[in-house]
């Protein structure tokens, strides 16, 4: 009579040596420092903007007035400023909308250019200049945005204004292309074009990278089935790279939303809701922060930090949408 007893499973455990434990502790310490540092920034932004949000509530996001009763930026009250009634009002509705509008214009222009550029480099460019083009693209993505801003003002504005005039001439029956005064410089449209130029290298670079990872045998199969180059691109390359390209576009959108100096130089900020993209008046949270910062009072700084937080949250949402799209549409197989 044999009874086979099921043996108790033994726990298996990785046992680290002393040296290993020290190593792990040091590394964990480093990672924790990064975590705390970055976490602290968020906590700080939230804490410092609490005052503003408590005072203005949702009005801060929807209102369109920014008025500061004076005070010295580095603390220390201005002489004679006793506890007066504080008439300051802070709200950034038009800036948020403006940021979205300019970024949207930029993406609408940049996306086709990026996809075209990426496809050209990967599939149409002569092989002899392929490496040169890839390097040029990487370099373009590294140009500081300040230089884009200078170029935008001194070189592109002339062209952009001409395009704006043309659009206004032919299409002013569409509300977004109509303007009250025909002054097209420093308008969301022209700023959006420059922003597009700034975003294109980034999104093109990502798309190209994604397209280049299309398995070669899938492309070969298309050709082996008698397909043309465009056929292979349509049925294999584009579907395969879709999620990557979307992620790249979102990266570009994040960049466009957070861009400061280029917009600072290219756009007139006006605290008024406006959807006339050719009008020389727009809004932008990031460059508003840079603009108002110079002579900001303590309370105003808190409002600027609140604006920064709003901007940060918008970028965060964009990034999360991007990752969820990527997670959902990555092809199996």
């Amino acid at each position: 009579m044999t009874i086979v007893e099921t043996p108790e499973p033994r726990q298996m455990m990785v046992v680290y040596s002393r040296a290993d434990r020290i190593f792990r502790r040091i590394v964990t310490g480093g990672a924790l420092t990064s975590l705390l540092l970055l976490g602290f920034i968020t906590a700080f932004l939230v804490m410092r903007s609490a005052e503003t949000f408590r005072q203005f509530g949702l009005d801060f996001i929807t209102g369109s007035e920014w008025f500061s009763a004076g005070e010295d930026p580095l603390g220390g009250a201005v002489e004679g400023a006793v506890e007066e009634v504080d008439e300051s009002v802070f709200s950034i509705g038009p800036m948020i909308v403006g940021s979205l509008v300019v970024a949207l214009i930029a993406m609408l222009i940049a996306l086709p250019l990026s996809i075209g550029g990426a496809l050209y480099i990967e599939f149409y460019a002569p092989r002899s200049i392929y490496r040169v083009l890839v390097s040029l693209l990487d370099l373009a993505a590294a140009i500081p945005s300040l230089i884009f801003g200078l170029w935008g003002i001194q070189v592109f504005t002339a062209i952009g204004v001409r395009w704006a005039t043309l659009l206004n001439d032919r299409l002013s029956f569409i509300p977004i292309f109509s303007v009250e005064f025909e002054n097209f410089g420093r308008s969301p449209f022209v700023a959006g074009c420059v922003l597009a130029a700034l975003v294109v290298p980034i999104t093109t670079s990502v798309s190209r990278e994604v397209y280049s990872r299309t398995p070669r045998d899938l492309i070969d199969t298309c050709f082996a089935l008698g397909g043309s180059k465009w056929g292979a691109i349509r049925s294999v390359v584009m579907p395969y790279g879709k999620s990557g390209v979307i992620a790249g576009a979102m990266l570009g959108l994040g960049r466009a939303l957070g861009e400061t100096v280029a917009i600072y130089l290219m756009l007139n900020l006006v605290f008024r809701y406006s959807f006339e993209i050719l009008d020389s008046a727009g809004g932008n949270v990031a460059s508003m922060i840079a603009l108002k910062f110079g002579e900001a009072t303590d309370k105003e700084i808190s409002a600027l930090i609140a604006s920064g937080l709003v901007l940060f949250i918008i970028t965060l949402i964009v990034n999360m949408i991007a990752s969820s799209i990527v997670a959902r549409t990555t092809p199996r197989a």
Binding site: S34, L35, L38, G39, I41, T42, F44, L45, G254, L257, G258, T260, A286, S287, I289, A290, F293, L304, I305, G308, L309, L311, F312, T315, L316, V318, N319, S323
Partner: peptide, 17 residues
Amino acid sequence: FIVQSMAGVPSVVAGLF
């Protein structure tokens, strides 16, 4: 998660902080 989120901090916000 935190590292990924912080990659999206607008540069002006970093300066403000």
